[in-house]
Structures are given as C-alpha cells and as structure tokens.
Amino acid sequence: MQVIIIGSGSVGSSIARELLSHGHKVTIIDEKPEVIGRSPDIKNAHWLIGDACELSVLKQSHPETCDVIVAATGDDKSNLVVSLMARSEFGVPRTVARVNNPKNEWLFDDSWGVDVAVSTPRLMTALVEEAVEVGDVVRLLTLQTGGAMLVEYTVPMDHPIIGHTVDNVQWPAETTLTAILRDGTPITPTGDDVIEGEDELFFITTPEGEEDIRLLFS
C-alpha cells in the first residue's frame, strides 16, 4: 500500500513507523528539513520538504498514485486543506485526518474530503471511559463516510443479556456486532456465540443506531 503522511511529529512518525514495519511504502511531507533522519527507524520513508497545503508541494508526492493520505499535523486547518485537495484535486481513494481541537470535529466530514477523522482527545477520553465505566456505551471512532461509528459496550456481570446467543438478541437497525473481546482475546461473533459477563462488544453503527444501543442496554 502507498501512503502519504503529512507531518512528522510524534503522531505522524508513529504512523510511519508502523506502516513501514508492515511493508508499506510511505512518503512523509514536512516543512522542516531538520526532521529528516531524526528518527532512524523511519529512514526508509521517502521524504519531501515543503508545505503540503501548497498544491505544488503536494503534487510532488504524486498523490494520484497513493492509496491513503494521512493528514497528521498539529494544525486542524492544515489537515482540512490537505484532505480537501487530496480528494478534489487528486482523487485520493481514502483520507484520514487528525483532529487536534475537539471543537473543530464537526468540520472533519466528507464536505472537506475527510473519510476518517481521528480525534486524539476524544479517543483518549473514550479509552478512559471504556476502562472505568462498565455498562456504558462508549464511542471510540467516527467514520465520516456514511456517518458510521465504532462503539463499545462492556457487559456488566448482572446484565440480563448474559446467556443469550448473538442470534437471540434483537440488535438495533443499522447496527452490526463486529467483534467480542473476552479475557483479552478477540472473537469474531457468530450467531451461536453466547454473551458472557464482562464481554466487550464492538459495534459499527450510525448515530441513530448508537442511541438505540444505549436504549437496548439501559
């Protein structure tokens, strides 16, 4: 897979490091020349120095041939501009954008060319809530394309859903149970799987489905 990453800060570098370790081709665009070589473990990435918000700079990375662009800078305006240019000017199939300020999250949608918006503060909050609030529906990630989202629910030990098979539960419309995490082991759910206490249930759903999940487990 060919990936272009905008920004080589801690977030961009971490993403590049993981992708390179998985054998993907990575191009990193950053304004600061001194960042090249700062992290030896991402030296195999192709580097391009310049402001990716400038069309001429972004064009040098050949985004028309890439599979994904990741806008990972610490500036929300830059991430939005890059995402919009990637989609409108180069037809990049998939864009992932970092949201730094949760107040700007509403902007990161398809109208700005963003497929997946990742809000670090929201994700950290969700992970904290997921760790301490058994029995509450927690939103982990919003996928702007189609308005889908990933939510998680940890089943309390005394919940009446325990003992029922997946097929016996009337899940809300526009909601798919995609995974069960049990004792740290991920399970691909089948209709015959029996739900147990402290199971972590992961759903892909819509905003309406999220509310229906809350009603189901309330």
Rank of each mutant, 00 (worst) to 15 (best):
K32V: 08
L20T: 02
C66M: 07
S8T: 12
V118N: 03
N104W: 12
P40Y: 05
P40S: 07
A71Q: 03
I29C: 05
K59H: 10
R38C: 06
M1R: 10
G146V: 08
N100K: 10
D136C: 11
W47A: 03
N79F: 03
I195W: 06
T188K: 13
G50D: 06
P33E: 15
D30R: 03
G146E: 10
P156K: 02
V82P: 02
L19M: 11
L216G: 07
V68T: 09
S78V: 14
G50T: 02
M157T: 14
L215H: 15
N79W: 05
E18Q: 12
V166L: 03
L58V: 02
V116M: 13
I6E: 02
A117E: 03
L215Y: 13
E105D: 13
I195C: 04
A71Y: 01
V35I: 14
E34S: 13
E89P: 05
L127P: 05
D192I: 15
R182Q: 13
H22L: 13
I49T: 07
I42V: 11
H164T: 12
V155F: 02
R122L: 14
S61F: 04
A52Q: 06
V57P: 01
I4C: 01
R214N: 11
V3P: 01
G146L: 05
S111H: 12
P186S: 15
V68A: 00
V99Y: 00
I42W: 06
A179Q: 14
F217H: 02
R38K: 13
T73R: 03
N44I: 04
V82H: 01
S61C: 05
K25V: 05
D158Q: 13
W106T: 09
T145H: 15
G7K: 01
V166Y: 03
K77V: 08
A126R: 04
S10D: 15
D67E: 14
G91K: 14
G147P: 06
D41I: 07
G184D: 11
E198V: 12
P156T: 04
E89Q: 09
T165P: 11
D183G: 14
S88A: 12
I5G: 00
F108H: 00
